[in-house]
Design a protein around this nucleic acid. Structure first.
Lengths: 117, 117
DNA sequence: CTCCTATATGAATGTATGTTCATGTATAGG
DNA sequence: CCTATACATGAACATACATTCATATAGGAG
């Protein structure tokens, strides 16, 4: 854990300042959880479809070419992280996006990987 | 895979349009890889420190309270996904951010999880 | 009440991933 | 050369995670 070096590119005061402004472990953990949700192709697909239309579970499974159970599990993840919301109608559960920041996230990511959508 | 329902909330034409505009599997995979990099607390910490200063491996390990090997492994991940770049000086390797979109990513994420940095 | 459909969920399984440990490589100093 | 330092890397291990399978729940149709 304790490595030498201390390259002295920056001063002690600067180090203290950087450490002082370091987000708490809790905030960092939440940030990681946030991004982890987007780190799976299946979830990204589901989010894409939901960005285009409110959809029920079966239709999401059909569009994403995934099993119903897999979709349901992933939607649970998306629900718990508050990216999607649900509306129930009889036995059908309709999912839609809760958070509209998603598109801007994708924009930054696509720019980085150099794709023109 | 083939589930029933077809809730008909949207028309066939709309479905075709949505499927037609679906990014390729390759693009989706790259997007997921992009976000996966941010889905780990250790890497987030390292990126935070690098967003404040160019730093060598040992100092990063010291700041992040991580082992040198762990830091080196994670820096490799960050290098391969082109988030950081290196500069060598003797035996010391200095890392710095390659990509400046990172801060805007964090802003969106922090807004979502409801933290005031 | 009974059956069917839509969805959720728990257990099991295979795979991916982060850290550690041991070691390899490269460079500076004596 | 020889040694020490800085960093990289491969194997091993433990954990996390995505999917599947089987089953549970809940609501509508008859």
């Amino acid at each position: 854990m304790i490595d030498k070096c201390l390259c002295k590119l920056i001063s002690e005061e600067e180090i203290d300042k950087i450490l002082g402004q370091l987000p708490t472990d809790d905030t960092i953990a939440k940030l990681a959880e946030f991004f982890k949700v987007f780190g799976d192709p299946s979830r990204l697909k589901l989010l894409y479809f939901l960005s285009r239309s409110e959809l029920c579970v079966a239709d999401l499974a059909s569009l994403a070419k995934m099993g119903q159970s897999a979709v349901s599990h992933q939607l649970k993840t998306l629900r718990l992280s508050r990216f999607v919301k649900t509306r129930k109608e009889g036995t059908v559960v309709y999912y839609s996006l809760e958070d509209m920041h998603i598109q801007s996230l994708f924009d930054v990511a696509l720019e980085h990987i150099g794709e023109e959508v």
